[in-house]
């Protein structure tokens, strides 16, 4: 009998805010047992009996890219949806192969210059799945797994129970904290996060957009493209996010690498607020009119961003991150140990 270690943020965690089970595996624990990622997900499916869950297999030595183009430590290497011990044969599992640097990548995807910095140089990258990884999925299928009740979407960052129709968002840095046993903020995403999620970057084989092409959306544009409704489209479901100092740390790294919001990285409210506080340039003219409508709808208009305000040091910004970064003001802070259990599945 062998034991597979897993972390689970169970349904009902965080004072009942978490609506569904989310399981996180470390790829090293999986590989140490000689299991494939699919085998590991099948073990978790059996382990949970008649329950259902989203499952992420994490490579914490790898890097990935947030929707707004910030490189972070820790990547989703595979994902699954499990229900009643089952995994849908065609759509229930998704591998996310390592993505190699290609010729011309740094010119086509300028945000990837972060990968060449001392922070991330040499680390493997997992973003979106390769075409073989996508298996039976066709052109319109998102990078998502579906089995029974559970949809695990956008390479393991948004999961919904499609029967009771509850949903939760876990951005990459929230996963990072779950895997490291750190601290998370949990609350309703709200209009700032709703707008911010849409401010994406252009990527080949990206986590969310771009398979064999660079996709239709570049930095400075909004993938939501839904005008004043953008602040509502993802505003009302809960999210497990990192603390704001942690978000500031990774965003400041990107700014230190010379990334310009609206040109190289997305123009989310969080990124714009940090760039302004740090005195870093913002490519105002490259932000599309449609994106400005969305930013203005949450009080992040160009005039406000161009107002002269004191420039702060990296240390000051991290210390004051809670007041600098807008959004999720009503979230509650939890130690991961209070919302996540470490368990072992015997097989």
């Amino acid at each position: 009998m062998q034991k597979l270690k897993y972390r689970i943020v169970p349904q009902g965690a965080a004072d009942g805010i978490v609506p569904l089970n989310w399981v996180f595996l470390d790829c090293k624990d999986v590989e140490a047992l000689g299991l494939t990622y699919l085998d590991a997900c099948k073990i978790i499916a059996k382990e949970l009996g008649k329950d259902c869950a989203a499952v992420n297999i994490m490579d914490m030595d790898a890097v990935t890219v947030t929707s707004d183009g910030i490189m972070v430590d820790g990547a989703v290497a595979a994902l699954a949806s499990v229900d009643h011990g089952m995994i849908n044969k065609d759509f229930g599992f998704l591998n996310v192969s390592e993505f190699k640097q290609y010729e011309g990548m740094m010119e086509a995807e300028t945000h990837m210059k972060q990968w060449l910095s001392d922070y991330y140089k040499g680390k493997p990258l997992h973003r979106g799945p390769s075409m073989p990884d996508r298996g039976a999925r066709v052109g319109h299928n998102e990078n998502m797994t579906l089995t029974g009740r559970i949809a695990n979407n956008n390479v393991g960052s948004e999961a919904m129970n499609m029967v009771d129709m509850t949903e939760i968002l876990v951005p990459l840095l929230g996963m990072h904290e779950i895997m490291h046993g750190g601290t998370v903020n949990i609350g309703v995403a709200g209009p700032m996060v709703s707008v911010g999620i849409g401010m994406v970057v252009s990527e080949l084989q990206g986590r969310i957009f771009g398979y064999t092409s660079l996709g239709a959306y570049r930095a400075g544009m909004s993938a939501h493209n839904s005008g004043e409704y953008a602040k509502t489209v993802k505003s009302d479901y809960p999210a497990i996010v990192s603390t704001k100092p942690m978000l500031a740390e990774y965003t400041l790294r990107a700014l230190d690498c010379g990334m310009v919001p609206g040109r190289d990285i997305g123009c989310s409210p969080a990124v714009l607020s940090l760039a302004k506080a740090y005195g870093k340039p913002i490519d105002f003219d490259n932000i599309s009119d449609r994106a400005w409508i969305e930013l203005e709808s949450v009080g992040m208009g160009r005039a406000k961003l161009e107002e002269a305000t004191p420039v702060m040091s990296r240390e000051e910004i991290i210390a004051k991150a809670d007041s600098i970064i807008p959004g999720m003001e009503d979230a509650k802070t939890y130690a991961v140990s209070d919302i996540c259990e470490i368990r072992y599945a015997e097989f």
């Binding site: 229900d83 319109h140 998102e142 579906l146 029974g148 979407n153 499609m162 029967v163």
Partner: peptide, 15 residues
Amino acid sequence: EEMALSVPTEECELF
């Protein structure tokens, strides 16, 4: 406009 609709899969009929 396009609309994606993801729905519960056949496993829900097989519990």
